[in-house]
């Protein structure tokens, strides 16, 4: 039996396996990050942090449907000062911890990155692509090549940590934006954020269910789009890609890696398969690799390309 190695080196960060807890899911406290790590994640991402505390949108903020999830949480977070107090001694988590940082302007991103620099995060992720929070991401025009370049440059100058730029699947010219991020010094692209926004209407109430009416679509419905984005990005940029979108099984993860992802994010999969989705996905990847003669993750990455 050949020896299967699931380890991944992502921008110099050593991961025992390619699964990463995606931002916005469970990353509210250090205790939950630790729990996710214990359930097999190779790395974890905290819920996005802004300069000021935010309560986010009113409930309902998250709702599921046959093919995934719709959410408009609205970036609730305790703000950078409280976050810096919460995420102390991050080595206790047991796996690398990625800080997700948001802002309404580039100066905010810088302030949050600086504020979190007192703690031992392994990388900074900047989502410039949220589809459902006024003042942030797409609703603040951060999804253009110029804004992406400017914000990424500002963050790049502020930290020596690897910088991941998280992009929206909505934008046809996703590769142009990824190149802008690469040119500005990004170390990896996280692709993709939730798509849409979408809407689910309760027909008896005759009203949209989410309080914000619209929300980002994730889960199975997003996966083919995410895979296509990663496939295109793999050809367009030289930096690694973290593939996110609808992954809840080992087969999904392998598909995403074959499209070109060096590591994969799992978020909505926590709902469909439980908090131990990470260990399940890793075991499924391992079995598949064994049956199909793959020994390393690296040999899978980009395998679907001509």
């Amino acid at each position: 039996m050949s020896k299967i190695n699931l380890s991944v080196n992502l921008c110099g960060i050593q991961l025992t396996n390619p699964t990463i807890l995606a931002s916005g899911i469970l990353g509210t406290t250090k205790a939950l990050l630790k729990r996710v790590a214990e359930n097999g994640a190779g790395a974890v991402t905290i819920k996005s942090i802004s300069v000021e505390p935010r309560e986010g949108h009113k409930n309902p903020t998250v709702i599921t449907f046959e093919a995934g999830m719709l959410n408009a949480v609205g970036y609730s977070n305790p703000g950078v000062d409280a976050a810096a107090r919460e995420f102390t001694n991050l080595q206790d988590v047991g796996v690398p911890v990625i800080a997700s940082v948001i802002g309404t302007q580039k100066e905010d991103f810088v302030r949050v990155v600086e504020g979190l620099s007192v703690q031992k995060f392994s990388a900074i992720e900047i989502p410039l692509s949220c589809p459902h929070t006024p003042g942030f991401g797409l609703l603040a025009g951060q999804g253009t090549p110029q804004a992406t370049f400017d914000i990424t440059s500002a963050v790049r100058k502020t930290t020596k940590l690897p910088v991941f730029v998280k992009l929206s699947p909505n934008i046809p010219e996703i590769c142009t934006i990824a190149k802008a991020a690469e040119d500005a010094g990004a170390d990896a692209i996280t692709a993709v954020n939730s798509m849409g926004p979408g809407m689910i209407i309760n027909i008896e109430a005759q009203k949209p269910i989410l309080s914000f009416k619209v929300g980002g679509v994730t889960g199975d419905a997003l996966r083919p789009i995410a895979v296509r984005c990663v496939y295109d990005l793999y050809k367009a940029v030289k930096i690694p890609i973290i593939g996110v979108g609808g992954i809840s099984t080992g087969r999904h993860a392998i598909e995403m890696m074959m499209a070109g992802a060096s590591a994969i994010g799992i978020g909505t999969g926590v709902y469909f398969r439980g908090i131990d989705v990470f260990v399940k996905v890793c075991e499924e990847i391992r079995l598949w690799m064994q049956e199909n003669g793959f020994g390393t993750i690296k040999s899978i990455v980009g395998a679907a390309h001509d």
């Binding site: 899911i25 469970l26 939950l32 819920k47 998250v62 609730s76 926590v270 709902y271």
Partner: peptide
């Protein structure tokens, strides 16, 4: 409570949802 089904992390109590 926000989502009610264990994904949003809002109701954490020492790593328990």
């Amino acid at each position: 409570i926000k989502c009610g089904f264990g994904v949003c992390g809002q109701c954490d109590c020492s790593g328990q949802r």
